[in-house]
Structure formats: C-alpha cells, structure tokens
Nucleic acid binder design. Structure first.
Length: 310
DNA sequence: AAGGTGGACAACCGCATCCAT
DNA sequence: GATGGATGCGGTTGTCCACCT
C-alpha cells in the first residue's frame, strides 16, 4: 500500500514560479505563517503542491535569504565542512546565514567540486589525487592500476588541460614548434597523447614511494599542492603549480586562507567526535535531530577544523 | 545570424525521519 | 508500540542564458 500523494498532481501547476504566485505565497505566509504546507496553497489561492510551496519559500522567498555570489569565506566554510560531514548540505547551510542547503549543494556541484579537482584534490575525500593513487596501488596489480587511473582521471584531467591550454609540446626537448606534427597528427592523437602523459605521471607517483614520504603529505603545511606537483613529475609545471584555493587562479600564494588547512582528508582520522552533537550543542537546534553521522567521512577531529569555529 | 554547448540555478522526486494520535 | 500524515533532506532533472563555433 503506497502513500497517498501530497497533492493531486492533475490539479497543480509545475515549473517556474511567476511573480504573481510569489506574491500570493509571500503575503499569505506573512499573515498566517508556515503551518501546514498542505493547506497553504489552497488557502493562498495557488494551484501548487504544498511541497512546491514549501520549497519555493525556503529556497527563494524567505526574507532572510542572501542572493548572489558566495564569498571566499563562505566557500572556505563549505569546503571545510564538506571535508568533515560530506554531502550533508543542510548541516553545512546551517553554518552559513542566509544560505539554503539547495544553494550550497548547487554551488558545490557547479563550482567548488571543479575547483578542487583542478587543484589536484579529490572533492570526495579531500585528499590529493596522488595520495589516493598510492593507496589504490597498494591493493591492485599494476595493470589494474593503469586502467583505474585512466578511468578515474581521464575526463577530469582532459577537461582541466583543455581549459588551461597547456602545451605539452613546449616541454618536450625535441618538440620544436615546427615538428610537433611528427607525433601529434590530429586532435584525437593529441587527446591520446595527453592521456598517456597522465598515465605516466600516475604510474611514476605510484612507483616512487619517496614522493609520498611525508606521513601526512596532504597536511596543512603547504604540502598539498607541493606533493601533488612532486608526485606527478610528468605533469606540466603549470598544472603542478596549483594552490589549494582561489589563489591558484590569482597567484596569491600561501597568503590565501584557502591554502591553509583546507585539505583535511586523513588528518581527520583520530579523536573522532560526532559533529552533529557539537553543532546541536551549540545551536540547540538541529532540524534532523537524531540523524547520526556514522561513516568515516562524516567524522572529524579538532585538527580538521583548525582555525574554524564550530 | 543560427545552432550547439556548458554553466548556473530553480524545481522536482522519492525516501527518511519526525511527531501527533 | 503502531500508524499515517507532515516535513526535511539529498540526488537528480529541467530551464534559462551566455558564450562559442
């Protein structure tokens, strides 16, 4: 026996909200509040599902919402919290006044994920790709590693390399401007060559454990990009120069707060504390109440949140 | 100028959880 | 404790728009 639908789908409008609908909803809520979303559209004279009204209000119409660009500070907060709690957008949004979980989620998916990838940081684990590859290499035979490496990195790296217009040929001693055609005959060849370069860099990173000597190569001492650069010697210098933060695009170096303690990854291993308890303790409110954060990426230590007030 | 492509954001969907009865 | 409606949440899809070819 399925649940009854939250509204009669035949009778409701869908898609973009019109200014008139926004007005109706806003003025109704201003007068009556947001109790019982199922009744709100009916009483407000809207041909909308109650759920749709709730979403429109919470994500767009609420007067306390901020609209517009995310600041650097907000982005840092998102990245830091994401490294601790993962995709728990409502938890992250709760730390960003005026931002909704939908805002945060969209911003992460469209901007921040790519930004981190572009800096050689895996947006899921918040560890450098080179470190992840080394971890994988310890469990797989070399042929498997090569295939995995290609599958995992091809799209992302190609995207990155294409965007940055990196000229591999200029780094080849024999690749004078005139003779690049000797081994790159077409765009497809160039793509394949790029993939080969990426695979070479990964396999070197895997085969040379020295590159990952540091016990915490991804720690906050600036080793993040440096290790990625070192561990991927075959990567173009322009790529290995990425910093972990907006500075990577603005050449601000380590002065940017983005470069400090943003790549938390394995530093979160010890002294694990449940974040929601902490958040709940301070806020005295938590929309999800007893929802537990139990997986590895959801745990954090004080180390992870260095310089960040929870 | 027209069509294609990708980014940004709004909105929807289905499941999980809460909570009153 | 069981039940069912209300609400919250995260993932996904749709749409608009700017830019590129």
């Amino acid at each position: 026996m399925g649940r009854i639908p939250c509204c009669e789908k035949d009778n409701v409008e869908r898609g973009q909200w019109t200014p008139e609908e926004d007005n109706k909803l806003s003025s109704y809520i201003a007068q009556h509040g947001t109790r019982n979303w199922r009744l709100i559209p009916k009483n407000a004279g809207l041909q909308r599902c109650g759920k749709s009204c709730r979403l429109r209000w919470t994500n767009y119409l609420r007067p306390d919402l901020k609209h517009g660009q995310f600041s650097d500070a907000e982005e840092q907060t998102i990245v830091k919290l994401h490294s601790v709690v993962g995709n728990q957008w409502s938890l992250i949004a709760a730390r960003l006044p005026g931002r909704t979980d939908n805002d945060v989620k969209n911003h992460w998916n469209t901007k921040l994920k790519k930004k981190l990838s572009g800096m050689g940081i895996d947006p899921v684990t918040h560890k450098p790709f080179s470190h992840l590859m080394a971890e994988i290499a310890t469990t797989l035979a070399p042929p498997q590693v090569a295939h995995l490496a290609e599958a995992a990195f091809k799209d992302e790296m190609l995207h990155l390399l294409t965007k940055k217009r990196i000229d591999f040929q200029s780094q080849e001693p024999n690749a004078a401007p005139g003779n690049t055609a000797t081994y790159i005959n077409s765009k497809q060849d160039e793509k394949d060559y790029t993939i080969e370069k990426i695979k070479l860099g990964l396999s070197r990173a895997i085969q040379e454990p020295d590159m990952l000597q540091s016990t915490k190569p991804w720690d906050s001492t600036g080793a993040t990009s440096a290790n990625f650069a070192g561990a991927s010697s075959a990567f173009p210098a322009s790529m290995s120069g990425y910093q972990y933060g907006p500075s990577s695009f603005a050449n601000e170096g380590d002065r940017s707060p983005w470069s400090q303690s943003m790549c938390t990854g394995s530093t979160c291993g010890d002294q694990q504390v449940r974040l929601h308890e902490k958040l709940e303790g301070e806020n005295g409110e938590d929309s999800e109440g007893g929802k537990e954060i139990i997986n590895g990426s959801s745990m954090f230590s004080s180390d992870c949140l260095m310089g960040f007030t929870i």
